[in-house]
Design a protein around this nucleic acid. Structure first.
Lengths: 212, 212
DNA sequence: ACCTGAACACCGTTCAAGT
DNA sequence: ACCTGAACACCGTTCAAGT
């Protein structure tokens, strides 16, 4: 028996029964094991919920991410959105848990990294990262049931507000610097072809960047 | 015995014991009443939590509100922030409940009203209102303990992001119209002395567009 | 170290009466 | 209508052993 197997069983039980009916005993039963085996690998129910929440966040910031910060932020947030919808009561789970595992920290750091690229300072970037998580989690919880087209519209709108809001909080000098950094990284030799910051709305991931 | 007295006792018990230790039996004991008296006035624990959450929201949008939408939004959000901090586990309570009472709807409508004044359409304003609630609730829960100066800085920053983000989502024509409405309402007779919208916080709402 | 068995001190909810 | 008393079917957690 491993902690991972217990967390996996707990997530399956969550899918079947929902958060309110999730019980240490039911997790044990599902594994054909005694109650205290669960307690041996997970310290208690709160700890198990934390492990479950962290597991839910797997891969939200997996590597091939767009270089432009608005796109990067949008991709990570959308993956978080999908992850929370992938299990029953996923958003409630994240709210009820105090995730402190590697996936949680990785997610927060990736979002804060995007905000830093935008030109925010350390504190602002940390706050912005939390803001994105709260917005996505709250929206998924509000909506309750399965993903609909309407939900996508609302997610897109919320991310637009956040991206534009972050961009507006960046001092012009910092934004300038961030642009220059990005331009330099994208095409090394040519000197000064600056483009408008933050790649506009409608949709597309928009930055081939890695192409050509 | 009234439902209100039970809700008040439940909130006091919340303050004393925290959300995890909040029990129907403890509420009954605190009132010197039998367990089923609580069940008579509140349908069950989830319903009681909903009533508690709604009661917590009292007065967040009480009437004298600034006419400029950024100020109005900031005042309401700050009051929500204070309300959630006024009771132990206030933010967790709001997350765990499905508030559906008059105060909840009033709060959402007031926030949506501010977003509408800004120039957003019905759907956008509803989403923006939810966004503000999620941001404030999440921040208070993250911070956990009592209000510090640091917390105020983070709240201000988050509201700046949201206000600027909302302003940026408004089509120029709608913003124009909102500005005209506000100017007309503030001083009836004179025709066209348009001023920068929003009397915004230290850093103004940033919208170029309205500037000639 | 890892797991079993049994128990403790609670829960939320409900049923059957009382007045 | 409003409240009491008693019970049911669970909980999370822990203790004492086993191997």
């Amino acid at each position: 028996m491993t902690t991972d197997r217990i967390v996996a069983a707990a997530l399956d039980e969550l899918d079947d029964s929902g958060l309110d009916a999730l019980t240490m005993r039911r997790v044990a039963t599902r594994l054909g094991v005694q109650l205290n085996t669960v307690y041996w690998h997970a310290t208690g129910k709160p700890a198990l919920l934390d492990l479950m929440a962290d597991a839910l966040l797997t891969g939200c910031d997996r590597p091939p991410l767009p270089p432009a910060w608005p796109d990067r932020l949008r991709v990570i947030a959308t993956r978080l959105h999908d992850a929370l919808l992938s299990r029953r009561d996923g958003a409630r789970l994240l709210e009820v848990a105090h995730p402190d595992g590697p996936r949680w920290h990785s997610l927060i750091e990736s979002l804060a990294g995007a905000a830093t690229t935008a030109g925010l300072d350390r504190t602002g970037a940390a706050t912005a990262a939390r803001l994105v998580v709260h917005a996505v989690t709250g929206m998924v919880r509000d909506h309750g049931l399965g993903r609909t087209t309407v939900d996508d519209v609302r997610l897109t709108f919320a991310l637009d507000v956040l991206v534009d809001g972050i961009a507006a909080r960046v001092p012009a000098s910092a934004a300038q610097r961030a642009d220059d950094d990005l331009a330099r990284r994208l095409r090394p030799p040519p000197p000064a072809t600056r483009r408008p910051r933050g790649s506009g709305r409608p949709p597309p991931p928009a930055r081939p960047a890695t192409e050509d």
